[in-house]
């Protein structure tokens, strides 16, 4: 994917840029809001990463200007502040996701992937099939290898979230935010416990493991290799 990174701190910017290049993506860097706005308006980006605090035109202002000019590409806002007000202001300003500094690069990459591949609302799948796993999202029914699997609401929620992003990395923070509405880090590793419960029902006793752990990053569900 082609990413525009608007970030004033040179080291952070090149850290992100290098990471994206290594992951096989293209990254353009802008070091202030005005340059960023310029590049952003020129277009052609799949996703934008904008730091909230920029010299000159602030990140939020640049974002609003881009949206006003009809730039539709998804935007991930970076911020050093993690307050609720802040997040709400960012999302209201037209951001699609919000990441609080400091962050692990893998977290950023996972979120960018999720933004770029976010399925359009119109063709939401009601039948998801991954190898021999079938999910009927309307009836909330899960079948694997022809066998019905009973899941608790929490387990089902987690499975559907992963399955809708088949082949994509989903980080712990993404799960905490989207499934439980936690915008803080609980000390107890609640995500791993949920995943291990889900695994014991979906993967245990079957031929292959569909749910994979990416150490230190998160999880993904995919066809067996």
């Amino acid at each position: 994917m082609k990413v525009l990174v608007i970030e004033d701190d040179a080291r952070t910017a090149s850290f992100i840029g290098r990471g994206l290049t290594e992951a096989g993506h293209t990254a353009d860097l802008a070091h202030n809001g005005d340059d960023g706005l310029h590049l952003g308006l020129a277009g052609g980006y799949d996703v934008l990463v904008i730091d909230r605090m920029l010299p000159g035109l602030s990140g939020l202002e640049a974002l609003r200007a881009l949206r006003a000019e009809g730039v539709r590409a998804p935007v991930l806002l970076l911020t050093a502040l993690g307050s609720v007000d802040d997040r709400v202001a960012g999302l209201e300003g037209g951001a699609d996701d919000y990441l609080v500094k400091p962050f692990a690069f893998s977290e950023l990459l996972a979120r960018l992937n999720a933004l770029v591949r976010r399925p359009p609302l119109a063709d939401i799948e009601t039948q998801i099939r991954i190898a021999d796993l079938e999910i009927d999202t309307r009836r909330r029914r899960v079948i694997r290898a022809g066998r019905r699997i009973d899941l608790t609401p929490q387990e089902y929620k987690l499975l559907e979230f992963l399955a809708r992003r088949v082949g994509e990395t989903v980080t712990r923070t993404m799960l905490l935010e989207n499934l439980w509405g936690f915008h803080f880090d609980p000390r107890t590793n609640i995500v791993d416990a949920h995943v291990s419960r889900l695994r014991s029902k979906v993967d245990k006793g079957f031929d292959s493991e569909l749910i994979r752990t990416l150490r230190g990053v998160g999880y993904l569900i995919d066809e067996p290799e």
């Binding site: 307050s83 609720v84 007000d85 929490q154 439980w180 416990a193 949920h194 291990s196």
Partner: peptide
């Protein structure tokens, strides 16, 4: 600084958080 108070049901919030923690606690 940040006060976004709404009228809410604390029982519901407790329920949600407990469900999030249950597997980890029971583990």
């Amino acid at each position: 600084a940040e006060r976004r108070f709404i009228v809410m049901n604390l029982t519901e919030i407790v329920g949600d958080v407990v469900e999030a923690y249950r597997p980890a606690a029971e583990e």
